Simulated scan of single mutants.
Amino acid sequence: MKDKFAFQQQCLFSLCFENSSTPGYLTEKLIQAAAAQTIPIYWGDTHLQGNIESSGGGVNTKAPVYAHNFHNTQSLIEYIRHIDTNDEAKLNMLKEPLFLDAGHKAYFDKTLQTFLLSIMEQPYEKSFRRGRACLRLFEEQRYKNYMRVLGIFKKAKQHLAALKSYKFI
């Protein structure tokens, strides 16, 4: 798909299933679905449910449909059908903000700005994240690999020459 976001914007619901249901494991799926103004059907981080909401920050558990809230797939499907056929339920879910804390945008903007400025404003010599020592080790390893491959080619060329002298080729 060339443009996932444009596709999602055409849908009322977005399936947002993480690769695992692990506390603290939250990827872009939920955020992208909410940004496309769809109702996310979310399965994944069980820590989002209740704990963060009661702490006054984080993800609003009223914005997505949490698959973990349902005892089986059939009851989840029935709830989705209810939302799909009930305009008031649809509007209520779509009006819910994904994040509970009002300052999240300013926080993310400031964090991103600080991160990017720290990269762009530092001297070139200090911009290597792994440091010069790691860069040198990387270059040495690359050279060793090159020499190993070169040695394989030389041996193959010698074997080919030997085979030609026996008139096999």
Rank of each mutant, 00 (worst) to 15 (best):
K4V: 10
A6F: 06
F7R: 05
Q8M: 02
C11N: 10
L15W: 12
L15E: 11
S20W: 10
T22N: 07
T22A: 06
P23F: 07
G24S: 10
L26S: 03
T27R: 08
E28W: 12
K29C: 04
K29M: 07
L30G: 01
A35H: 06
P40F: 00
I41R: 00
W43K: 04
T46P: 04
Q49L: 13
G50K: 07
G50D: 05
N51M: 15
N51H: 15
I52N: 09
E53D: 15
E53W: 08
E53M: 14
S54I: 11
S55Y: 11
T61L: 08
P64E: 08
V65F: 12
H68E: 14
H68L: 15
N69A: 15
N72K: 08
Q74I: 13
E78A: 15
I80F: 04
D84K: 14
T85K: 13
N86F: 01
D87Q: 06
A89W: 02
L91E: 05
L91P: 02
N92R: 08
E96V: 05
E96C: 09
L98Q: 10
L98V: 11
D101T: 09
D101I: 04
A102N: 10
H104N: 09
K105M: 05
L112D: 03
L112M: 08
T114P: 00
F115T: 03
E121K: 07
Q122A: 08
Y124G: 03
K126M: 07
S127W: 02
R129H: 06
R130V: 02
G131M: 03
A133F: 01
C134V: 02
R136S: 07
Q141L: 11
R142Q: 13
N145F: 07
N145R: 12
N145G: 13
N145W: 06
M147E: 09
R148A: 09
R148K: 13
I152Y: 13
I152M: 14
K154W: 12
A156K: 13
A156P: 03
H159E: 13
L160K: 14
L160F: 14
A161S: 12
K164E: 10
I169W: 02
